[in-house]
Write a protein that binds this DNA or RNA. Structure first.
Lengths: 144, 144
DNA sequence: TTTGTGATGTTATACAGTAACATTTGCGAC
DNA sequence: GTCGCAAATGTTACTGTATAACATCACAAA
């Protein structure tokens, strides 16, 4: 799926949720798309300033928060960064793997494992936040 | 295990690893122990300043980094905080659950599930960082 | 005693995130 | 149209988190 298609799908997704992918939000999403892997808020801020001259942190954070809420982005706590979610429609059960060293992103289907984890956690009265199932470690290149 | 016992065990653990639980490091560990659940670096900094008058961020961060390296603490990325690891000897396979709202900490034995996750990730050439298996979500009280 | 190494102190600064309030924009009611 | 509301965005200033870079200290081996 190329960026244009993705953005169109994202726009449709938002309106289905009863909210709008406004110009700023769309632009921020585009900027995140342009990078591979993890991007930082202040990187996006710098990019945004190049494109539209002025922009302050709240502008970027508001857009990022919105996009995360809509499931279009994931936050990667370990890196204070954000990555694009390429299948926001399907409430995916795949785990996202992020390399702490290079920021490269992979994804592994771990539905059954996750179900077990959720069950175990639920037994302790604990609800796992499905948005936060981003696991960090080292990718092949960075391990070597 | 009370704090004194824990600290003694921690000291022994460090010397077995060929490094030292110095005064500052020990004091920081004590301060973390005194809180339940997650503590922030700047909270520890404030505590430390109360006890010894002067201390700057690097002092605290260096001690915390050391303690995390030694497996005595876990970092909780989602909260920019730290929690005590009470069984640093056994390379535990338990998942640590942290409530994003109140900082309460639980633990669930998820060895089999984790093994599956590691196997799946390894298939993609990705090494999961065992120190980072801290999952965030909502605890029973905060869900209600 | 010298010298090297690891730990700590110190200053300054970079990076991350948010509070609070002003302003604009889109849109339905009238 | 224009009034008034609500949502989004702009703006300023600040708080919180973390680290770079360099100085100093303490201790042990040569």
């Amino acid at each position: 799926m190329d960026s244009a298609t993705y953005l169109a799908a994202a726009e449709q997704h938002c309106s289905q949720q009863g909210c709008k992918l406004t110009a700023v939000r769309r632009q921020v999403l585009e900027l995140v798309l342009r990078h591979q892997g993890v991007v930082k808020a202040y990187q996006i801020l710098a990019d945004l300033q190049k494109e539209r001259g002025l922009a302050a942190p709240p502008t970027v954070y508001r857009a990022l928060d919105f996009l995360v809420e809509q499931g279009l982005l994931h936050r990667v706590d370990a890196l204070n960064g954000f990555i694009v979610c390429r299948h926001f429609e399907c409430r995916h059960e795949g785990l996202i793997l992020v390399c702490e060293t290079c920021g490269q992103v992979g994804e592994v289907d771990a539905g059954s494992c996750l179900a077990a984890l959720r069950a175990a956690s639920a037994g302790m009265g604990f609800t796992v936040n499905p948005q936060n199932l981003v696991i960090t470690g080292q990718c092949k290149e960075c391990t070597a």
